Simulated scan of single mutants.
Amino acid sequence: MLKNIPAIISPELMRIIMEMGHGDEIVFADGNFPAAMKAQRLVRCDGHGVSELLDAILKFFPLDTYVEAPVGVMEVVPGDDVVPTVWEEYKTIIKKHEGQERSIEYIERFEFYNRAEKAYAIVATSDRALYANLILKKGVVVE
């Protein structure tokens, strides 16, 4: 155990976010996402949701300031009448940790899958919210 590390962040997840470099992407996948099939590195966070993991890691994880949108979500499939309320949670959490709003990219479903396959890691959650999938692009630490 270490001080000030949220218990929701497993040793494996902490190792992954520490290994990542500037520009690397990590996917936080909802419970319906084919994470095991798409992942180069799979981190299981069963029993947790994307929002609570996002809130925990943004204390440590710098978002990329050199791109227009360091955050991406899977856009709603045309014809689907779902309104993803979880996106507003993400915006609130990001603003809380970044001190400002950050642009979010809305990524077509199959393009999201392609990006996920190239991501440094995929974190599989038990999130039941529809369209809760999230991509974060890592930035640099400036001190």
Score class of each variant (00 low, 15 high):
Phe112Glu: 00
Val82Cys: 14
Glu12Ile: 07
Glu75Tyr: 05
Glu101Ala: 10
Val76Thr: 11
Phe28Ile: 04
Glu88Phe: 07
Phe112Pro: 00
Gly79Tyr: 08
Arg41Gly: 09
Val142Pro: 00
Met74His: 10
Lys138Asp: 00
Pro78Phe: 07
Ala36Leu: 12
Ala132Ile: 01
Ala35Arg: 00
Val73Glu: 02
Ser51Trp: 03
Pro34Asn: 05
Asp46Ser: 13
Ile17Trp: 01
Asp80Gly: 09
Leu42Asn: 01
Ala39Glu: 00
Val142Trp: 02
Asn133Thr: 01
Arg115Trp: 13
Ile94Val: 15
Asp80Thr: 07
Ile16Thr: 01
Gly79Cys: 13
Val86Ile: 13
Arg102Ile: 13
Phe60Ser: 08
Asp127Lys: 14
Val77Tyr: 10
Ile135Lys: 00
Val27Asp: 03
Ala7Cys: 01
Leu134Val: 09
Phe61Asp: 06
Val50Phe: 02
Pro70Arg: 09
Gln40Tyr: 05
Arg15Ile: 05
Pro34His: 01
Pro84Lys: 06
Gly21Cys: 14
Ile8Pro: 01
Asp80Arg: 04
Thr85Val: 12
Val142Ile: 09
Gln40Phe: 06
Glu143Asn: 09
Pro78Ile: 08
Arg44Trp: 04
Ile17Ser: 05
Val142Lys: 01
Ile5Lys: 12
Arg128Pro: 02
Thr65Gly: 13
Arg109Glu: 11
Asn4Met: 13
Ile17Asp: 08
Val71Asp: 02
Glu108Met: 11
Ser10Gly: 07
Phe61Gly: 03
Ile16Trp: 00
Ala56Ser: 14
Tyr120Ala: 08
Arg102Ala: 15
Lys38Glu: 08
Ala29Pro: 04
His22Arg: 12
Tyr113Val: 11
Lys91Arg: 14
Ile5Trp: 05
Val142Ser: 00
Val86Ser: 00
Val142Ala: 02
Glu108Gln: 12
Met20Phe: 01
Thr65Ala: 15
Leu134Thr: 03
Arg128Glu: 10
Ile94Ser: 11
Trp87Tyr: 06
Leu130Met: 08
Gly47Asn: 14
Ala132Met: 03
Gly31Gln: 04
Tyr113Met: 12
Pro11Arg: 07
Glu105Arg: 10
Lys118His: 05
Cys45Tyr: 02
Glu88Met: 11
Glu88Arg: 12
Ile107Pro: 10
Ala116Arg: 03
Val71Ser: 02
Trp87Arg: 13
Ala121Phe: 03
Asp81Gly: 11
Ala124Leu: 10
Lys118Ala: 12
Asn133Leu: 02
Ala56Tyr: 09
Glu88Cys: 06
Leu136Met: 00
Glu12Arg: 09
Lys138His: 01
Pro6Tyr: 11
Ile17Tyr: 01
Ile104Val: 15
Glu111Ser: 13
Val83Ser: 15
Tyr131Ala: 01
Ile8Met: 03
Leu134Gln: 06
Gln100Arg: 14
Pro84His: 08
Leu58Thr: 07
Ile5Pro: 06
Arg128Ser: 11
Glu52Asp: 15
Pro70Ala: 14
Leu13Tyr: 07
Glu75Arg: 13
Gln40Gly: 10
Tyr120Glu: 05
His22Gly: 06
Val76Arg: 03
Leu63His: 06
Pro84Leu: 09
Trp87Phe: 02
Met20Arg: 04
Ala39Gly: 00
Glu98Arg: 14
Ala129Tyr: 03
Ala39Phe: 00
Asp46Cys: 09
Ala29His: 04
Leu63Ile: 09
Glu52Leu: 15
Ala132Leu: 04
